[in-house]
Each structure stands twice: as structure tokens, then as C-alpha cells.
């Protein structure tokens, strides 16, 4: 289908949203077929998830440290620094862990998925697979989608753990909050279901959204260098907007 430039950006956006939604159906339908290519899914978890670990861990550490620092000063206004452990953990689990990890994931893994698939299309590799009777949706698209879905909650857990570690480092070792207070206040106020698990739900949904957008943009990129470059940019833009919007919706309804 030909898209006309004269249309407003809104029509373009609607077209894109609709097409992405339709692509989700295609991917979901292809999941049973892609189970044959389990090895490919594992390989993608390696590329998409395991290789994002370092950046996620370092970012988590710093986010936790700065969080502890900022909240300490805010809490000290009210004389409530004993709650530092609680607020650091809650901010991480409920909000910053899923969102920051998702944004990093979109930049680190989403773009590479888009560029890779776009390049495969441009160099006829997807056609070559089709002609070798290997369905590229089941072999290329779905494994990457599933890998994003599986990796994000795991990455968020690692991010949160590193964040907590960083927060503890600053709060206890540097600002001198009592270690016992830090932990006991946290453990009596943080709930597994409403805080940890709901945060993981966010991670799961963000992972699905990012990898859907990345795969869709790559799969539909025009087979030119400019086309692939634009698709990569669109992945980051769309993924960021969708993450923040979904975050609001999920916070409003879930937590």
C-alpha cells in the first residue's frame, strides 16, 4: 500500500498503530510454528537479553545510588530517613526499574533487532528463507519477539537488585543510616504482590511492546539504507512513547 505524504501525521500514526496491532496477531499465530525453532529463540535471548546485562547492571547501580541520595535529603526534611530503604525499594520496584530498563532495552536491543531484520530484508535473506521453505515470521520475527518478552522481566529483576545494592551503599555506607533500620523498614512495608510482582508485570508488557515494535519496524522497513536507518529511529521513538503511556495506564489500573 502506498502512503501519501500529504496526509497528516495523525493518519500516519493511526496507520502505524493499526498495522503494528495486526502484526501482533500474526506473531501470536506464528508462536506454535516457531516452537520448532526453539534454538533460534534461545539464541535471541542470548543476543537480546544476556548481552544487555552489563549496561542494565551498571545503570541499575547508579540509579539506585542517586535515588538514595535524593530521597535521603527529601526524607530528612521530614525527619523520616528511617524510611529510606522502603522508598528506594518501592521507587525501584514499582516505577524506575521497569521504565528505565525498558528505555535502555529499547535503545540497546530494540534498535539492533530492527536494523538486523531490515538488513535481512534488504539483502533478500528473508526471501531466501521463504524459498528454502522456512517461514521468516516463525524463524526470524517470532523468536525475537519471544526473546524480548522473556528477557525484560529478568533484566528488570537484575536492575532492581543492583539498584537496591546501590541504594544501600549510599544510604548505609555513606550517609550512615543504620543497616538494621534500612532493611527492617523495607521488609515491613514492601509487599511481594503489589510491588515486586506488579513491577514484573510491567516489565513483561513493556518487553512485549518493545520487541513487537522493533520486529514490526524491521520487517516493514523499505529495503534501502535510508529505510533501515529511519526504521531504527522509529523503533526508539515509538517504543519510548508506548512505554511511558503504558506505564501510566498500568500504574492507574494495576497498582
Amino acid at each position: 500500500m502506498k502512503r501519501l505524504n500529504k496526509h497528516s501525521a495523525i493518519v500516519d500514526a493511526c496507520y502505524e498503530i493499526g498495522a503494528t496491532g495486526w502484526f501482533l496477531v500474526v506473531l501470536l499465530v506464528a508462536i506454535p510454528r516457531s516452537l520448532r525453532y526453539l534454538r533460534e529463540t534461545i539464541r535471541q535471548i542470548w543476543f537480546v537479553g544476556a548481552k544487555s546485562l552489563i549496561i542494565i547492571m551498571i545503570s541499575g547501580l547508579f540509579v539506585g545510588m542517586v535515588l538514595s541520595l535524593q530521597l535521603y535529603y527529601t526524607l530528612s526534611i521530614f525527619g523520616g530517613t528511617s524510611a529510606l530503604g522502603t522508598v528506594v525499594a518501592l521507587s525501584l520496584y514499582r516505577e524506575l526499574g521497569p521504565v528505565v530498563t525498558a528505555l535502555l532495552f529499547a535503545g540497546r536491543a530494540g534498535t539492533s533487532i530492527t536494523a538486523e531484520i531490515g538488513l535481512m530484508r534488504a539483502t533478500d535473506q528473508l526471501s531466501a528463507m521463504e524459498l528454502m521453505a522456512v517461514d521468516p515470521i516463525a524463524f526470524v520475527a517470532t523468536p525475537r519477539f519471544l526473546a524480548g518478552l522473556i528477557s525484560m522481566p529478568l533484566l528488570v529483576a537484575v536492575f532492581n537488585m543492583m539498584g537496591l545494592f546501590g541504594g544501600h551503599l549510599v544510604g548505609v555506607n555513606w550517609l550512615g543510616i543504620d543497616n538494621g533500620t534500612f532493611w527492617s523498614n523495607m521488609t515491613s512495608n514492601v509487599n511481594v504482590w503489589t510491588d515486586v510482582i506488579n513491577g514484573e508485570w510491567k516489565a513483561f508488557v513493556f518487553g512485549a511492546a518493545i520487541s513487537l515494535i522493533a520486529v514490526f519496524q524491521g520487517y516493514n522497513a523499505p529495503p534501502t539504507s535510508e529505510g533501515v536507518a529511519n526504521a531504527t529511529t522509529r523503533t526508539v521513538v515509538w517504543a519510548s512513547i508506548v512505554i511511558l503511556a503504558l506505564d501510566f495506564v498500568m500504574t492507574a489500573f494495576l497498582m
Partner: peptide
């Protein structure tokens, strides 16, 4: 990932 998740769920809540 699962170890981290298990740690968060059981040791910090």
C-alpha cells in the same frame, strides 16, 4: 534473572 527475582521477592519484602 530468576535468582535476582527470588531474592527481591523473599528477602526485601
Amino acid at each position: 534473572g530468576f535468582v535476582a527475582l527470588a531474592y527481591l521477592a523473599t528477602q526485601t519484602t
